[in-house]
């Protein structure tokens, strides 16, 4: 999973998206906030969901408990 490095830490883009998801947002909202192409946001958010760090409901993404604790551990 490219957004999670072998040592378990997150790639810089995934870190930025996880931080952005402290407030639940749509993919388009994250895209606008971080000025990233939509395809990169979609693919990274899919991987964050697969990693159990984020979850989607009705097109809105937010952090799971695991995602929130990961954000707290970030420098």
């Amino acid at each position: 999973m490219p957004c999670v490095k072998p040592d378990g830490t997150l790639e810089p883009l995934a870190q930025a998206i996880v931080r952005a998801l402290r407030t639940p947002r749509t993919a388009e909202g994250v895209c606008e906030l971080l000025r990233l192409p939509l395809y990169r946001v979609r693919s990274t958010m899919r991987e964050l969901c697969e990693a159990g760090l984020a979850a989607e409901a009705d097109g809105v993404y937010g952090l799971t408990d695991s995602g929130r604790s990961r954000v707290e551990q970030m420098p």
Binding site: M1, P2, C3, P37, L38, Y39, R40, R42, S43, T44, R46, E47
Partner: peptide, 16 residues
């Protein structure tokens, strides 16, 4: 597929 920008699907480009 794997790309230099991570794993991408065609559907990731929907809307563009």
């Amino acid at each position: 597929a794997e790309t230099t920008h991570g794993t991408l699907r065609l559907e990731d480009f929907k809307g563009s």
